[in-house]
C-alpha cells in the first residue's frame, strides 16, 4: 500500500494538465451560463421551448444536455490516454517497469485516478451552478444537479474505459485518441442496428436523459427514481474494459 501514493502522484503529474484544463473550461461554461444568461438564454431557450422555469431549461440546454456535456465526454476520453504504451514512446517505460510494482497495480492506479478525476469533473457543475446561481439570485434544483452528476459519472466512466483500452491497444498516442473519438460518434449509430436497438445503450442519451423514460423533455427535469440498473451496468462495462486493459498490459512485451 506504501507504493500506492507515489504511483498516484505519478499518474496525477502525468494527467494534471489535461484535467485542470478540462476543469477550467467546464467551469468557464458553467459560470458563463449563469452570469451571461441575459444574452444567452434567448438564444438557447426560445420562448415556450420548455414548460416551467426557463432557467432550468436553459441550464439543461447549455450544460447538462449541451456543450458542457460534450466537453466533459471529450475530457473523460483524453484523461484516459497515456499509460505504458505512451511511456514506451517517451522512453520511460524501462524505468517504470523496473519498479517493484506489478503491471496490474500500475494500470489500476492510473484507472483509479482517472475515475477520481471524472468524479470531480462530474460534480463540478453541481458545485459551480449552486454557488453562481446563489450569487446571481436564481436557482436550479440541487437534486437535479446531483442526479445529473451521477449520470455524468457513469457515462464518463464508460467513455474513459474505452479511451483507456484504446490507449492500451494502440502504440501511437494520437491513434488512441482518434479511435476513441470514432467510438464516441459511431457507437450511437451502431446501437441503431438490431439487436442492439432494443436496449437503451446510447450513453450520450443516458447522460443527458434525452429520449429516456427518466427524463421529462418538456420541463428538462429528471423524473422518477435514478436508473440504478442502467448506471450499474455502465459502471460494470467500464470496469470490465479496464480489467481487459490490465490483462493486455500484463501479457504485453515492452521492448
Amino acid at each position: 500500500m506504501k507504493t500506492l501514493a507515489p504511483l498516484l502522484f505519478k499518474a496525477w503529474r502525468e494527467s494534471r494538465g489535461r484535467f485542470l484544463l478540462g476543469a477550467a473550461l467546464l467551469a468557464a461554461i458553467c459560470v458563463l451560463a449563469v452570469f451571461g444568461r441575459a444574452s444567452l438564454m434567448k438564444v438557447f431557450v426560445p420562448d415556450e421551448a420548455f414548460v416551467g422555469s426557463p432557467y432550468v431549461g436553459y441550464i439543461y440546454q447549455l450544460v447538462y444536455g449541451g456543450p458542457a456535456r460534450g466537453l466533459f465526454v471529450i475530457t473523460a476520453i483524453v484523461l484516459a490516454l497515456g499509460g505504458l504504451q505512451r511511456e514506451r514512446l517517451h522512453r520511460t517505460a524501462g524505468f517504470t517497469l523496473a519498479l517493484p510494482a506489478s503491471r496490474a497495480l500500475l494500470v489500476g492506479v492510473q484507472a483509479l485516478l482517472g475515475l477520481g478525476q471524472i468524479a470531480a469533473l462530474s460534480a463540478l457543475p453541481l458545485l459551480l451552478l449552486t454557488v453562481c446561481s446563489l450569487l446571481a439570485h436564481v436557482s436550479y434544483p440541487l437534486g437535479q444537479m446531483a442526479r445529473f452528476s451521477l449520470l455524468w459519472f457513469a457515462g464518463g466512466a464508460a467513455f474513459f474505459a474505452v479511451g483507456f483500452l484504446a490507449a492500451t491497444l494502440l502504440r501511437s498516442e494520437y491513434a488512441a485518441l482518434a479511435v476513441s473519438f470514432v467510438f464516441m460518434i459511431c457507437y450511437p449509430i451502431a446501437v441503431l442496428f438490431p439487436p442492439l436497438n432494443r436496449y437503451p445503450l446510447n450513453v450520450h442519451h443516458i447522460m443527458s436523459g434525452l429520449a429516456m423514460p427518466y427524463f421529462d423533455a418538456h420541463t428538462a427535469l429528471l423524473v422518477g427514481a435514478p436508473p440504478w440498473a442502467l448506471l450499474a451496468s455502465m459502471l460494470a462495462v467500464a470496469g470490465a474494459l479496464i480489467v481487459l486493459a490490465a490483462q493486455i498490459t500484463k501479457y504485453r512485451d515492452y521492448s
Binding site: 444567452l40 438564444v43 460534450g70 490516454l81
Partner: peptide, 24 residues
C-alpha cells in the same frame, strides 16, 4: 506542451465559437 491538452483546448475553442456565433 501536453500531448492531449491541445485537443481539449481546440474543442473548447469550437464550443466558444459556436456559442458566440449565436449571440444577437
Amino acid at each position: 506542451s501536453g500531448a492531449y491538452s491541445p485537443a481539449i483546448a481546440s474543442v473548447a475553442g469550437l464550443i466558444a465559437c459556436s456559442v458566440f456565433a449565436e449571440l444577437p
